[in-house]
Design a protein around this nucleic acid. Structure first.
Lengths: 156, 156
DNA sequence: GTCAGTGCAAACTTTTTGCAACTAC
DNA sequence: GTAGTTGCAAAAAGTTTGCACTGAC
């Protein structure tokens, strides 16, 4: 994630904390920074490791509570996958679709401007939308190939 | 869920089990039936309660493994919410959007034919899609109102 | 008769909580 | 100084696993 985005999200978080009379602790900004330094999906452990590698130790409890805070502010989004909960920075990063293979569990990120356009235009009654996640489930080509092979065998 | 749909899904499950040389146990069909008798989202406990109320007792382990099986066949879909994992029957029931309030956690189901149309048409490389879930995050009107009131107070 | 599937309890993983110490305000 | 936050350890919640028994094929 580029420097400008990191600066942006720091501002967003600071504004949120001020507005809600909550404290600007170093932990919160360090975790936010780490989240925006990770690439793609990551686990809580990976986040913790990243922080450690940069000489910042935070407790598990703080990690969880801060991630929850960042989720409130919509700066991070959790994805509940088969392998467990994965997180992802979502500021200026919400414009992709998650394509999930239900056989092998592989997740691929796909872009689709048409879908994004429709989602941006959609009007919702009594609701102020500010993010979305779209998961498309199906079977990836390699699993399809394997299944076809297996079926061929069992039918002969 | 109507009778026809229940019959359909029984057929789908039976076919799947046959094809894959797995057993047609009464537990599997009872759980499937229960899933298609629940309204909207439900927890594993609620499913278990429903089965009990209809004099069918299954162990937790079987419940988990069968739900996993139904997920493989795409007859049920899990939603990982703040309150925990919720399940939902998804045969002929995938055409709605989940609108989630990030403040109070309330989930509302919304229909949008335009979005569905785009999703149906979307072409994916090397991937056979068969379902999707779309979550729109934001703030519902009652939470917005409450936040506005709170801000008014703290600024005076 | 055989082996996949079930029930049970124990194990394991993930997340939350209570409390004392700390620190942003 | 005070109340919100953190760290730690313990607890709770959610899910998986090992094993003996059962029943679908």
């Amino acid at each position: 994630m580029d420097k400008q985005a990191k600066e942006d999200v720091r501002q967003i978080l600071a504004a949120y904390l001020e507005t809600n009379n909550r404290r600007k602790t170093p932990e919160r900004f360090a975790i936010l920074d780490a989240v925006y330094s990770m690439r793609g999906h990551f686990t809580l452990d990976e986040l913790s490791d990243y922080l450690l590698a940069h000489n910042f130790r935070v407790s598990r409890a703080t990690l969880y509570s801060t991630i929850k805070l960042l989720y409130e502010v919509r700066l991070v989004i959790p994805h509940h996958m088969q392998e467990g909960t994965m997180y992802e920075a979502c500021y200026k990063n919400g414009d992709h679709i998650h394509q999930i293979c239900t056989v092998c569990g592989k997740v691929t990120e796909v872009k689709s401007p048409e879908v994004m356009a429709v989602l941006d235009e959609i009007k919702l009654k009594r609701f102020r939308k500010n993010a979305f996640s779209l998961y498309i489930y199906g079977i990836c080509s390699s699993c399809q190939a394997r299944i076809t092979r297996l079926k061929g065998k069992s039918n002969k």
